[in-house]
């Protein structure tokens, strides 16, 4: 049996204006509270570890061009072309493009990658002068120890270039 509480019966009769004074007291208290906001471009709040953001980080060494990420993407944002690389006859990505303009940062591609090859980024300022600039190709997203800042969203093992990994179970 649901328990009920009638909200309107709690009504208190107080003289005209007293309710407003009570409210003003609350507003007055706020004068002495520290500000909750930060002046944004100068100061930035720390990002959480699992932040899902801009500029994916992708590892050529780990990626086997299995296309799982492209199939998992709800908007078909990832475009991949592959070729058989001659010396060891391995599949290699020739083109790996993510169209950030259509990406909704859902993280499904990152979660689905069986070889832990793709990571979400940690940036959020993605304004660009041209739409084409939002299509990020291999040279932009490829892992670069100096500049890449991958997020820990998927809890993939961190990137160590050159080491091949077995797929996740």
């Amino acid at each position: 049996m649901p328990t009920l509480e009638r909200v309107s019966t709690k009504e208190t009769r107080i003289g005209a204006g007293l309710g407003i004074l009570k409210g003003m007291l609350v507003t007055f208290k706020h004068l002495f509270r520290a500000p909750f906001t930060v002046p944004y471009p100068e100061k930035r709040l720390p990002l959480p570890r699992r932040f899902r953001g801009y500029e994916f980080v992708w590892s050529r060494e780990r990626c086997t061009v299995c296309l799982t990420c492209a199939k998992a993407c709800p908007h078909g944002v990832i475009r991949i072309q592959s070729r058989l690389a001659p010396p060891e006859s391995q599949w290699q990505a020739e083109k790996f493009e993510i169209d950030i303009g259509l990406c909704i940062f859902c993280g499904l591609c990152v979660e689905s990658c069986p070889y832990d090859a793709i990571f979400m980024g940690t940036q959020f300022e993605l304004a660009n002068y041209q739409r084409g600039g939002l299509v990020r190709g291999i040279e932009k997203i490829q892992y670069n120890p100096a500049t890449s800042r991958a997020s820990d969203y998927s809890e993939h093992p961190p990137l160590e270039p050159g080491r091949l990994l077995l797929p996740k179970q």
Binding site: L18, G19, G23, L25, V26
Partner: peptide
Amino acid sequence: QLLSDNEIIW
């Protein structure tokens, strides 16, 4: 306190 007894809101 701020809102529920406020006469204007009433």
